[in-house]
Amino acid sequence: MAITISRDKSARGLLKEVQEISGVDLSQCYQCKKCTSGCPVSSLARCSPSEMMRRLHLGLGEELLASDILWMCVSCETCSTRCPMGIDVAAVMDALRKLAVRRGAAKGEGNVPLFNRAFLKTVQVFGRTYDLAMIAGYKLGSGKLLADTEKFPTMLRKRKIALLPPHGADRQAVRRIFKKTREDGAAQ
């Protein structure tokens, strides 16, 4: 792999921040690439998990947050399970995603953060997922109004998607959680 190192001001910040958010000691990584071998999306993405680790070591900054793998990673935890050094690589991905959203670097790859927001919004409001509201929120935001629509009639007929919002959930408890975790400035 060829890695270009830039020397912008933000370069130093990322490694430390990623370590803080994820609780992972990145210096443990010795680049065996076992994480990458098992990663189901590394062949589809431009940058693999072990490369992300190396780039962090080398002090790369903001450009890491624009890596396409962040929004292709399926959080399957294969990398974390297989790393011989016990590094939670998936937690590093979570940390990078969080930084990307926080710093607005995720705009170009907006669909996953958008989906996450739509998903969590329905949980925040209803206490459980409510597919119709979530799908509506996601589709309006993503502009992908027609994706998968050919399946909707069948899915509704087969009752795979409920028409009515869920009831019975302890909505109060969930709202409190969202309020509290957001107060800490962490949740989006």
């Binding site: 959080s75 979570d94 989906f115 996450n116 949980v123 206490g127 959930a169 800490d184 949740a187």
Partner: peptide, 20 residues
């Protein structure tokens, strides 16, 4: 009154939210 676990969207967003 069970509620949603937050799933992937939860832990991709915030560690504390994902636990709470």
């Amino acid at each position: 009154g069970w509620t949603c676990c937050g799933a992937t969207a939860g832990h991709q967003t915030d560690r504390l939210l994902a636990a709470a």
